[in-house]
Design a protein around this nucleic acid. Structure first.
Lengths: 135, 135
DNA sequence: CCTTGACCTGGAGTGCGCTCCAGGTCCCAT
DNA sequence: ATGGGACCTGGAGCGCACTCCAGGTCAAGG
């Protein structure tokens, strides 16, 4: 448990580029991060925690703008927990719907694959049959 | 069963704009579509069928470029079925992985929601307790 | 004949989320 | 003191998938 992390460490840990990390900061997803005397960023444990959630929400396609709103709520203090809940619950609803849609399409694609496999095996059977007749 | 469909009908049926439909044609997802003497497009049943699959693949985030490759295979005739299968199977693998990832994140988000709900109910209990003491 | 509505064209513009770059600073090891 | 590596800044650029637009054609209805 260190009390700070370097940009490189954070980038590695969350599989983000340094550019993306700075972009997130500019976009208001992270607060203005602490600096070493050299000017280099020093991320604290709660930056890491928030980034963890941000990563999770981004991975599930929450837009940057919405993420910024959420981050602002976090920065505004504990009294915003009900609003944060609203954001998360609405996002979860979207996500549930998206997952359901993907699973539905997954079925359709499997069906198409099976159809093509059928065509191929019919064709193979046909060829075998023809060869047999010819021999 | 009509033998052709107008752009408006297709757009409505697949919930696409006319612009997107034309864009797909330009991008090579559809062949050069038939025209009425007026110059208006006339979509045939096999355009509709292909569009159905295209919609399904786009909805699951297959990039336009890959879709164009697939469409070219379709246009090249039945002997490309093995290659089409490759495309579909590879896409299905991606999709399976994506669904698994989303479900994983879904769990994490639920967890966070539960955490916030816990904070709120603790806080409510605390308030009730305080009120009780004061009365 | 005139309007309306569906559609046409080529090409420019948009929004999103990064991603890249030039030129610079700081610090450490050789 | 020199070189390398990690990081800094502001701002430009990019890839994707549309989306919009101006100006036009055509067929049907009143």
């Amino acid at each position: 448990m260190k009390d700070y992390y370097t940009p490189g460490e954070i980038a590695e840990r969350f599989d983000l580029t340094l550019d993306t990390l700075r972009y997130y900061e500019k976009a208001g997803l992270l607060r203005r991060v602490d600096r070493a005397p050299s000017g280099h960023r020093r991320y604290r444990t709660d930056d890491v925690e928030l980034l963890h959630l941000i990563r999770c929400l981004r991975d599930t396609d929450m837009p940057i703008a919405r993420l910024r709103e959420f981050a602002e709520l976090v920065r505004s203090g504990d009294h915003t927990i009900p609003e944060r809940l609203d954001v998360l619950q609405e996002h979860k609803n979207r996500l549930d719907a998206r997952i359901a849609e993907l699973i539905d399409r997954q079925g359709a694609i499997e069906h198409k694959i099976d159809y093509y496999l059928g065509v191929l095996s019919d064709r193979a059977a046909q060829t075998a049959h023809t060869l047999k007749d010819e021999n």
